[in-house]
């Protein structure tokens, strides 16, 4: 006996009819077919959609550099012959020989409490590339003066050209007069052309003129190919957008930068970032498996 797609599951049958004529393979509400919702059916890629954004509107130096030079070099640098998948430390299941173990959690992985990722075979499909840059600006004095958080937001907008989002306090620390929900700064995740634009501004204009910056520490990294460092409030003043309007900026704020790469281990992420002009200093440590 045939059933409707919505009632089939309750009747203990498959939700989708597999006997032709096959219909109701996609669930929808009838209200979605109303005329007033027609504009919502327009895909984002169509010019008639209000969400339409033109892509690739200008030349992207960093992207071209990556494709022409960095990509094939990185493939050769990260190449390892006869590679095998290096399985990470995973939670260990219980043996199950006791009924008490039925609802117990799995045992923690060997060598720590956190599971680690597998390292997959490197090939032409997963050559490391820069995926995103996250900029986080946390302003401590914003507990006293809430407007500083908004000023930090405008500062991020000025140096990146993209719209940042506010960050709010999550904890309650009475001695710092910190309460949950206080606006404490701003953050932004840059991808694509704005990211590359920011990267070139950083490595060609800001960092060479910084008085304190000597290089990104070789010890930074979260073991998954993400490299983090910070810029001081004085370094921010070298961004051309701020420098051109210095009289408007008696106060700038320090920022934390996180470079998200698709490298599987940190040393490869550092190699990749060095191709974009970021200097690295200090002693480098290597993971046990890479």
């Amino acid at each position: 006996m045939r059933a409707f797609s919505t009632s089939a599951r309750a009747a203990g049958k498959t939700a989708v009819s597999i006997v032709p004529p096959v219909h109701h393979t996609v669930k929808f509400r009838k209200s979605q077919l109303m005329d007033k919702y027609a504009s919502l059916q327009i895909p984002r890629s169509s010019v008639t959609s209000p969400k339409y954004r033109p892509q690739r509107t200008c030349q992207d130096r960093v992207r071209e550099h990556h494709i022409n030079t960095v990509e094939s070099d990185m493939m050769l640098i990260t190449y390892a012959h006869n590679q095998q998948v290096l399985v990470g430390n995973k939670p260990r299941p219980r043996k199950g020989d006791s009924p008490y173990q039925l609802y117990q959690p799995q045992r923690v992985p060997y060598g720590g409490t956190q599971a680690t990722k597998d390292i997959k075979v490197r090939s032409w499909r997963n050559v490391p590339m820069l995926e995103a840059i996250t900029i986080n600006c946390f302003v401590k004095p914003a507990t006293m003066n809430h407007d500083l958080a908004a000023a930090a937001k405008v500062m991020l907008q000025q140096i990146t050209g993209e719209k940042p989002t506010s960050v709010y306090a999550r904890t309650n620390v009475p001695s710092w007069t910190l309460r949950p929900g206080m606006p404490m700064g701003a953050k932004i995740k840059l991808t694509g052309q704005p990211m590359n634009q920011f990267l070139t501004t950083l490595t060609e204009i800001v960092l060479p003129r910084s008085k304190t910056f000597t290089g990104v520490s070789n010890s930074t990294g979260d073991q998954n190919g993400n490299i983090t460092f910070s810029l001081t409030a004085d370094d921010i003043r070298h961004f051309p957008e701020i420098e051109g309007n210095l009289e408007l900026w008696p106060q700038t704020f320090a920022i934390d930068l996180c470079f998200h790469t698709s490298a599987q281990v940190d040393p490869e992420a550092r190699t990749l970032l060095s191709a974009y002009g970021l200097p690295f200093v200090g002693k480098e440590r290597y993971p046990a498996r890479w």
Partner: peptide
Amino acid sequence: EKGKRFSPEMRIP
């Protein structure tokens, strides 16, 4: 090769 870096003199064209 550990500590592999691109040349610091390399510039984005």
